[in-house]
Design a protein around this nucleic acid. Structure first.
Lengths: 168, 168
DNA sequence: GTTTTATGTCAGTGTTGTTGACTTTCCAAG
DNA sequence: CTTGGAAAGTCAACAACACTGACATAAAAC
């Protein structure tokens, strides 16, 4: 959009390959920490990360369709279906035929599903809260800004849409 | 951007579950973007993310031992060995018997390995550079701070050690 | 000389992703 | 009303990458 001449003064960014590499490694190690707690919990119940992701986004947008979920998660329907099947079988997720369009399935968490989602969510939020606390408010703002800029444009669209739907 | 809970005073953080959830989702989507470019390149050559990680850390610390690499990557030796075997067979990595301790193997990139590492590294750095540019210098600082706080303590140790080894 | 460490290997298993082919259901346009 | 195509689900096969467990070898450490 705006030109590449960085805003004058302190806006000038001198980015050495070394600094960028630090960012890359920080991202790698942080993501490991980020998923560590939920992974432990999931393991307890015999589920994996894919189940967590499904639970998360169904919890976030109850009644979402399978197709919508597919585009958010960015996997094939076969891959998602395998996960959904077990979640439905285990009565964590309910699949309701659409009223307007009966081909669509709307997905909801059952009470049991909501309990697990909460357990996972609490653990991950606690980690995030701790990190935010250590880093301070300005750092949090910067964190979010950089992450958003790192997303693929269409994923950013998903993210932004959800951001609007629940006032930030 | 509109802060719902104005941070009263200065260091006090009011963190709603919603704000934390945004952070969690941002992390999820950003990581996808973060790995997208290298994944495409790796796919071209028939390698995967595990190969990328090995190449990265061998490039970062030439002569590192297998055991050291294991503790950085946090996988089993069987898992790492499968990756290293193909990299050595394809002459991207060289394994030299240790001089001081002949049980150890020291790992180095060959010229060919360095070329691929560069290709991967350049793509990922370009993404990171772009994100940093869009976000601005203060955001970059915050980004790094939060990520560091999110790591597991022992991973943070690895990260910090590497940070020192090449002055940040 | 026994034990421990570092590395490598074989075999089996599980999760999560992929393609490709096929069916059923159902909306909507001709 | 027929038909084209979208949405959803299923089956089969396969690959990447993680895991466990067992075992082998060489060399350092005690």
């Amino acid at each position: 959009m705006s030109d590449r001449q960085p805003p004058s003064g302190q806006g000038l960014l001198f980015l050495t390959d070394e600094q960028l590499r630090k960012g890359i490694e920080a991202m790698f190690f942080a993501y490991r920490g980020f998923t560590a707690d939920p992974d432990r919990i999931l393991n307890k119940y015999g589920y994996g990360r894919a189940h967590h992701r499904a639970l998360h986004f169904i919890s976030r947008a109850p009644g979402t369709t399978v197709n919508n979920l597919l585009s958010i998660l960015g996997v094939t329907k076969q891959s998602l279906n395998r996960v959904l099947r077990t979640l439905i079988k285990d009565e964590l997720v309910e699949s309701r035929v659409g009223t307007r369009d009966k081909r669509e399935r709307h997905l909801f968490l059952t009470d049991k599903g909501a309990v697990l989602e909460q357990e996972l969510s609490n653990a991950q939020r606690e980690r995030m809260r701790q990190a935010y606390r250590e880093a301070g408010p300005e750092a949090v703002q910067g964190f979010r800004t950089v992450l958003e800029a790192m997303m693929d444009p269409d994923l950013q669209r998903h993210f932004t849409r959800m951001k609007e739907s629940a006032n930030d």
